[in-house]
Structures are given as structure tokens and as C-alpha cells.
Design a binder for these strands. Structure first.
Lengths: 340, 340
DNA sequence: AGAGTCTTCCAAAGCGCTTTGGCCTTTTTG
DNA sequence: CAAAAAGGCCAAAGCGCTTTGGAAGACTCT
């Protein structure tokens, strides 16, 4: 059942039927009702391919997925996706993932824009002066950055959490508890979130005249194993920290294991605070010692990003508004006063 | 730059240019070369929307993503996606995720098929007599099932791993080591993979005249917490098992924690084998006691599914071939002879 | 009553590609 | 050497929708 048939059946022109269906004003209300009714009754659904060709609108949002044999998709992605999908569903939006060579995403961005494959895109895990952000900005497709980039001469729309504030608070708490030697086990420090977190820790330390030792900050891919290794290194050297801030719950698993392997205890010998993105399958309160966390649901962020993308597509949102969400500091058993 | 312009520029008809580009035979090789050359030089890319409208082909594969406030996307999904994306990238395929109400996916399947939004779909986490499989089969869109359904009067194409064999082997090993009371901490037993795994364990036990106790098998969502709870329950009751087979590494984290909380040890008091889907961020050899596993890379499965989908789209693969991959049994420190 | 204004609808022109049916040359064939 | 076949190309008809530029009729206004 296509427009032509439907129009014929109603003894109307395609024009009128199309307009009636799409809510244009220049059609009699009674006619509109007739059309709507017939459309529903016959289960008429406009062919999206045709509509796309005519309008350029796709009803899809895009994400360029970096891939490659040695590229691992972040497990956080799936949670973000839960939120995004949940919103998208209620608005009949689909998400198209365009896999790209991790080292050449530009080609793919250009392709999906040139081909009008999606109405908007989002970008995640941005770095300072991220080329993708600059690119989509010049390409002129609506977009939202999940996280923040920095150092552009233009503004853009983003949804981020207050990483600096979160880690500032976490460090401040540890300092208040008497800790003097903190360590930070961070994610990839080419990404903005990691930079902000480090800044937060440094700022808190500086306030008390302390510093983050050169060897007390590490930047690694956030795996359990890397959490373990980093912790071993930190605790086995002289000048070992008495408190650790850690950028992910997954790494925290490794931290806990390392501490145990060294026959030390949390929080007796070392206090631990980790960032919690809220995974349904791994919860900080269920660690052997309940973990203090800076908490922010990445899933909610996904829903929010979808919402904003939808708003931008429909023209409801404009401009370069960035929003920064506060992060909860949740204190549990893994922190205590500094030993000694 | 569109076909018309390109054709004009070459002083050829659109027909010829189109044919030259798409490899049709009825065009002079020299002409073809000229066309190809000009197309490349001017960066001509056929507009996919137009092509879709004309051919019905989209160059996209689809996945219906169950969503909802209380629906969690399986963390395995992201690894599967890595593999899928990796293959898709090299073949210029995009993946479209269509979020659907978890309780009504049929509507969405019908929509994406009716609208010709994708060339093929895949289905994951199937259950016996899965309605989605029956649906896409009748809808007539090419598809691959990742995993297996059962109990249809038709055949279909799937890629699965030998879950039954894997858990049969695991259980057999434990039995050989003298264990008599095994327990199985399984995933949702409405899904086929869980059923097969249980069957594998039961079969191994039966061979030695043993059985799987009523209370020694649990079926839960695969989270750390559920692994913990299940283990506590198993070990605190009378008739506690001396060996546990566990369906996921994430649950195994909980198992290990529970065993420790009870001041028991692995493998001294209880042996443990878990299934490992091969996550980059959590590896069985890095557990406090290196974990024995049944191992199968879900990522490779993703790549394979993509490959088969591409083959079906292009007509290279037909029929209802199902393939079952063997699973490696990797023995590490977490298994030992039965205590006592 | 004639001019201007809405209101309501339509015919037809795209959107950019593929594909059908056919036309002209050139080559092969009996 | 005429007839048949093959090679190489083209014009034009879709694919199903949106949108432009009217047009017919109803209504208001002077």
C-alpha cells in the first residue's frame, strides 16, 4: 500500500494525502480525518527510502564505531547504549553504527554526512582538540559530544559529568582522613575525562600543600589486569601511597586483588575510591570491602544524549549549550584514616 | 556530484555510467575504465538513498535491541559487536540497532522488514522455539541466529558454540578428579545456551551414575552479585557441592568472593570452572586463583555472523546451514581433586 | 457587483539511482 | 554475401515520497 494507491482510493491527490498525514495546515480538518482514518485502517506506512530521498531525513542517529583487530570497544558502551536505546525507542529513532578503522574515522564521518545516512551523530570519549569534533562541526551535521573536548575556537553542544569535581571531592575526603600520599590510577590520559580527573586530584592536594607524586599517577587502559599491575607497582615501591583513587570499577577489581596479594588490607593499609559508572552486573557495594565511589550513571547520560539529539534534529534545541552533571560521592567501607 | 553530472561530463548516458560502475558486462572495457577513472577522480559516490529506493538494497544489517527501564543489555554484546564491526568495516556494511520494547519486538521486526530498512538481521540469545526466529523466517528476510533455537518444523542458519560439549567436558574433568557433588550456576534457563550447558553437565554426571541435585543448579541473570548469592546458598546448605561450574566470568567473580567470605578456598574446598567469552578487560588467568575455563571468543563469533550475513545478502550463502564451534577447555589452578 | 483573500485541493516536477526495451554498428555464420 | 548474432550504447520509465506553483471555489469587503 503506497501513497498513490491510498490517494486513489480516497479520490484525492497524493499531495493532499501527504499533507494531511504530515500535519500541514492547508488541508480541511474533515479531510484530514478521513485520510488519517483510511491510512490507519489500511496500515499505510510511508516508505522511508522514498521519504529519505525526497526529504533527506532518515530518522536515524549515527555513531562511528572505531574497530580493528586490536581495538576493544569499551564495556561502558553497552550501558550508554541501554540509555540511548531506551529513549530512542520511544521516539522511533534508530541508531546506526558505522564501523571505521580506528585510525581513520574521518573518511567514515564524511561518508555518513555526504550520504545523508543519519540526521545527527554523537561522539564519545573525546580528547582535547578532538579532530572528530572539529570535523563534524565543519561538516554541519547536528551532534552532541558525550564528554568534553577542549581548545577549539568554537563552541559545541556536550553532555558531560563533572569529572574534575568528582575526583576533587574524592581526594579531599582522603586528605581530610589524613592521607598525604595519594595515587591515581587513571584511564587513558589522552582523553579529556582522565585529564579532568587528574586535575581534580591535583587541585585538592594543592589546597593542602600536597602534590601528586610523579610515579603516583598512572594512565592505562581500564582493565582488571592493568588495575592490578598499577597497584603492585605503586605499593611495592618506596613511598607507597596510602590511598588510591581509581577511574573505574573494573580496574578496582585489580586493585583489590593486588592489595590482597601483597597481604595488605583495605582500608587498613590503603584506602580506595573508584569511579562507578553504574553497571548492573558489578556493584561497588558488593566488593569484598564495600567500595567508596564517585557515582554517575552512564546510562542516564545515554538517554540524555539521545534526547538532545532528537531535540536538535527537530530544531527544538539550538546553540552550543554544554551541560555538566554533578557526581555523587558515595562513602563506603573502603576508606579510613591514614595508617600510622 | 551525481550520476547525471558525471554522465554529462563523460558525454555518456546515465545508463552506461551506472552499468560501468556496477560491473555489468554490456559495456566496453575501455569505456568502463574511463568511467571508473572519472568517478574516482571526482570522488563520485552514488547516493545510497536513491540506490535504496531503486534497488531495495540498503547495505545495512539490522539488530533489534530490546530496551526498557528494567532491561539491561548484556555486557557480552559489546564484544560480539567488536567482531561484527570489524568484519562489517572491511565490507562497507553498517549496523542499525532498532530499539524495541523488550516485550514487543515483533512490531519492530515487522517494521524494519516492511520498510526494507536492512538487508539482513541477526538474532542473539535465542530461546527454544524463539518467536523472533519464527517471525523473521516467515517474513523472509535473510538472517543468522547467534546461538540456537529449537523445536521448529523448519531449518534455519545459525552459528553457535558447543555449549553442551563444553560443559560436558568441564563436568567430566571434575568427576575424574573425584568430585561427586557438582553444582551449576547457570544463566537464564529460558535461553538455549543455558539449557544446553545444563544438559552437558547432567550427561557427564549420568555417565558416572551421578545426578545434579535439585538444589545444585541455579539459573540467574549473570551478575557478580547473583554469582555470590548462588554460591553462598550452595555452600551454606548441607550437601554442599565440592565443585562448581559457572556460566560466566562475571558471575565467577561473585563465586570467588563468596568462597572467600566463607573462609573456604579454591581449589582446596571447592573447584571452579567458568565459561569465558574472552573479555579484554577481565581475564581468567588473572583471578586470585587462575580460573579454569571453557573458552570461546564471542568476538570471533561476531565476525563470523557478520561474514555469513554478508554472504547471504550477496547470495553466496543459501540454505539453512547451522554451524557449531568447539569450545576449548583450559585447565588452570582453580580445579583440584575432591577434598576428603 | 467586482476585486481581493482565504481555503482547499491538485498536477507535475523533482530527489538520484537502476533497469527495461531498443537502436545502431560490427562481427560471425551458413 | 545476406542473415543472424553480438557488442555497445541510449532514452525513458520507474522506485514512492515531498514540495512548488497554481487554480477553483467560497468568502469578505468596499
Amino acid at each position: 500500500m503506497n501513497l498513490k494507491q491510498l490517494a486513489h482510493m480516497l479520490a484525492l491527490s497524493q499531495t493532499t494525502v501527504s499533507r494531511a498525514l504530515n500535519g500541514y495546515p492547508e488541508v480541511n480538518e474533515e479531510t484530514r480525518r478521513r485520510v488519517m482514518d483510511a491510512a490507519k485502517r489500511h496500515g499505510y506506512r510511508p516508505n522511508p527510502s522514498a521519504r529519505r530521498l525526497a526529504t533527506g531525513k532518515t530518522g536515524m542517529i549515527g555513531y562511528v564505531l572505531p574497530t580493528g583487530a586490536s581495538v576493544d570497544i569499551d564495556p561502558h558502551f553497552v550501558e550508554f547504549l541501554s540509555g540511548l536505546g531506551d529513549y530512542a525507542r520511544s521516539h522511533e529513532l534508530d541508531l546506526v553504527l558505522s564501523p571505521a578503522d580506528a585510525d581513520d574515522q574521518e573518511t567514515t564521518y564524511r561518508r555518513i554526512v555526504a550520504n545523508r545516512q543519519v540526521d545527527a551523530v554523537y561522539i564519545s570519549s573525546p580528547r582535547p582538540a578532538d579532530r572528530r569534533v572539529a570535523l563534524v562541526n565543519t561538516l554541519g551535521i547536528p551532534f552532541i559530544v558525550h564528554g568534553r573536548s577542549e581548545g577549539f575556537d568554537f563552541d559545541y553542544a556536550f553532555t558531560d559529568i563533572d569529572n574534575e569535581g568528582a575526583f576533587h571531592e574524592a581526594a579531599r575526603l582522603l586528605i581530610q582522613l589524613g592521607h598525604r600520599r595519594l595515587a591515581l590510577i587513571n584511564g587513558d590520559d589522552r582523553e579529556t575525562f582522565a585529564i579532568h580527573r587528574e586535575r581534580g586530584v591535583r587541585r585538592a592536594l594543592a589546597t593542602s600543600g600536597l602534590t601528586l607524586g610523579e610515579r603516583h599517577v598512572c594512565s592505562v587502559v581500564m582493565t582488571e589486569e592493568n588495575g592490578y599491575r598499577a597497584t603492585r607497582r605503586l605499593l611495592e615501591e618506596g613511598d607507597a601511597p596510602t590511598a588510591i583513587a581509581c577511574s573505574s570499577l573494573i580496574m578496582a577489581l585489580g586493585v583489590v586483588r593486588a592489595v590482597r596479594d601483597l597481604s595488605l588490607s583495605i582500608p587498613g593499609d590503603v584506602s580506595l575510591i573508584a569511579h562507578d559508572d553504574v553497571f548492573p552486573w558489578l556493584r561497588p557495594e558488593n566488593f569484598s570491602v564495600p567500595l567508596s565511589t564517585t557515582r554517575s550513571s552512564i546510562r542516564l547520560a545515554g538517554a540524555r544524549v539521545a534526547e538532545r539529539l532528537a531535540a536538535r534534529i527537530s530544531g527544538l534545541e539550538e546553540g552550543a549549550r554544554g551541560e555538566v552533571w554533578p557526581v555523587d560521592l558515595v562513602v563506603r567501607g573502603s576508606v579510613a584514616g591514614a595508617p600510622g
